[in-house]
């Protein structure tokens, strides 16, 4: 085999043969570049922020629609106190997409209902995404064995965290929080998805609070643009069954 020497006067012209020295150089430079790209892809993909453990039993064709029964509460946001044998507690109700379920739920306020939908769940906090069917909420033939749980007042608290839309955060989008999700959160909250404060303590443990105005009505629209940003919030902490609720005084909300 003869060894060709690289000529320092070699000149590359795209429509002519590649000079041998250039060719030898490219045989090293191109694979090195590819490896750098692969390592960058691995590094960025591997070190993304953990989106948290959440489940969305998604889709009308996936066979994941479930049937629940419970007592429905329409305000400030639709929710149901589940009285299934296997599941208990409060679950929020939303429609598919970025749509709240207030309109559909209003006719069933205080009633014992059967609900068809998908389960969305994170850390035990649940949302039911109603099936796209007129029969997704129907009145149960039997009277409810019990009513919606009584409210418990736990006093004023000041919390820091992020305002999120409950549907995405609890599992429909991963991650369903942070700056890249801010636009989606704003559009979800505008569409009537219930707002939630995700408050984290110094150890990073998260607790979730459904946000209302200070009178227990739907959260003020002025707070929607603060979704996705770190905020400090002061309000009255109440417990509705297993659901933590924060009645927020709007003047106390600060961007951090």
């Amino acid at each position: 085999m003869t060894k060709r020497a690289s000529n320092s006067d070699e000149f590359y012209v795209g429509y002519l043969s590649v000079p041998w020295g250039h060719s030898r150089f490219l045989r090293v430079a191109v694979p090195v570049t590819l490896w750098v790209m692969v390592f960058v892809a691995m590094g960025v993909a591997w070190t993304q922020r953990d989106p948290g453990r959440a489940v969305w039993e998604e889709g009308p064709d996936s066979g994941f629609f479930r049937l629940w029964d419970g007592v429905l509460r329409a305000k400030p946001y639709p929710m149901v106190e589940l009285i299934n044998a296997r599941e208990e507690g409060v679950a929020l109700l939303v429609e598919m997409g970025k749509h709240g379920a207030s309109e559909r739920a209003a006719a069933f306020d205080g009633k014992h209902v059967m609900i068809l939908g998908n389960r969305v769940e994170r850390d035990g906090r649940r949302i039911i995404e109603l099936a796209d069917s007129p029969d997704a909420i129907v009145t149960h033939p039997d009277p409810a064995p019990r009513g919606f749980p009584p409210e418990e007042d736990l006093g004023e608290v000041t919390l820091t965290g992020e305002i999120v839309d409950a549907k995405c955060f609890l599992g429909v989008m991963k991650p369903g929080e942070g700056m890249t999700h801010k636009s989606c959160a704003i559009l979800c909250l505008t569409g009537g998805i219930p707002p939630m404060l995700v408050a984290r303590d110094e150890a990073g443990m998260a607790s979730y609070y459904l946000l209302t105005d200070e009178n227990g009505g739907p959260m003020a629209a002025e707070l929607i643009p603060l979704a996705g940003e770190p905020v400090e919030v002061t309000g009255m902490h109440r417990k509705w069954g297993d659901l933590d609720v924060l009645h927020v005084r709007i003047e106390t909300v600060k961007k951090r």
Binding site: H181, S183, C184, C188, T190, G191
Partner: peptide
């Protein structure tokens, strides 16, 4: 993805 499926 982030802007779709909504009211706007």
């Amino acid at each position: 993805y982030y802007g779709g499926f909504g009211v706007r």
